[in-house]
Design a protein around this nucleic acid. Structure first.
Lengths: 194, 194
DNA sequence: TAATTTGCCTAAAGGCTTTAGGCAAACGCA
DNA sequence: TGCGTTTGCCTAAAGCCTTTAGGCAAATTA
């Protein structure tokens, strides 16, 4: 019989599409085999196991996010850059909810360190250069921004802000305004208690 | 043979313990049956299906969180209240990582509306009364705080801030300082473009 | 074209979910 | 106390998912 032309690359890419269509937790080796009209066992020549498929999708999503972030930041600074980066996450999560979920997969430390997640942190740091924060405040701010972006987007995706006024877009804009103001006016560390 | 004395309540409680021990996604009806030394099918007299078990754990976690939040807020205001509430989430996630994950489960809108998640939003709102924000800014701030608490705690739990300086506790404190400052100094809505 | 490699297949074992039907323990009421 | 009813846990079985082992044919290479 004719061969289907499977590769790990193609499988992971198709897995990512599947995740966006049916949810990341519904992505199984079996479902993927069905999509390629091929027997399940065949995929195991290309994937070590189900975990590898999921990790692959996660890494793909992280890389795509980092790409978009790099594009968005090019030539921008300050509030402009902040908004652009924030929208990258939000838009990606809306366009690719399955991939976005995948990007939240717990990776083992080694895999995580080699992933594009690292570049994302560096880009947030680059963005903050426009705000001129000294270390270690810059790190605190990186963590704050990461938390807000991730937190807001997940809560929004989970439906937390729908069906209630004001609409989510307005909150998003105002929250970015507020963060911009905060970064311009970052409070100094309080003096240690005597 | 002697009966095991199963009830939906006990199963869900045991499921929550199991989640904390082995991770929420490892909670299965089968694993729970093993823990009670009972055949799998027996649990289906008490649980409609696996989903009901997971939803039950999620609702339990949301209720426990709301309880702790109510305790923490009693008699506190301003920065004090902010810190107390924030620590409720962070501490709960560290003590009960499985339950905390469960609390993030996608609930159908009806279930979500009846859950203790609603009270949590109300408590955040109560906390904000100390900062005297007009509507709709108060809602924006509720969403911001929810995002930061959830975002920070999930990233921390996923290991995002470990093995890098400064330590996570310091960032947490400084981020709460910053949020306190921001709430005291919430920027007005920018004028609409002409 | 012959030899080798590679890719997809069949087969099979083991785990999880869920339903159906059975027997015995516990309960409730005379 | 005894009898009937309800309830709780059991066995059995079907369906889907993962993963491994071993086989045959297509693609590649010499």
């Amino acid at each position: 019989m004719a061969r289907a032309g499977l590769t790990a690359e193609r499988l992971i890419r198709a897995g990512a599409e599947l995740a966006d269509e049916v949810g990341f937790d519904q992505v199984t080796v079996s479902a993927l085999a069905r999509r390629f009209d091929v027997k399940v066992a065949s995929l195991y020549s290309h994937l070590k196991n189900s975990q590898e498929l999921k990790t692959g999708i996660a890494l793909l999503a992280l890389a795509e996010l980092a790409d978009r972030a790099a594009d968005a930041l090019a030539g921008r600074a300050g509030r402009d850059a902040l908004t652009a980066l924030a929208d990258v996450y939000r838009d990606y999560a809306r366009e690719h909810p399955g991939r976005y979920d995948a990007a939240r997969l717990r990776l083992d430390p080694q895999t995580a360190a080699a992933s594009a997640g690292v570049q994302q942190a560096q880009m947030t740091r680059a963005l903050l250069r426009g705000y001129d924060l000294p270390e270690p405040d810059q790190t605190h701010a990186v963590r704050l921004l990461g938390s807000v972006f991730h937190g807001y987007v997940s809560l929004e995706l989970a439906g937390g802000f729908s069906h209630s006024a004001p609409d989510s877009q307005e909150s998003w804009t105002r929250i970015l305004d507020a963060l911009d103001a905060l970064l311009r006016n970052w409070p100094a560390a309080p003096p240690p208690a005597p």
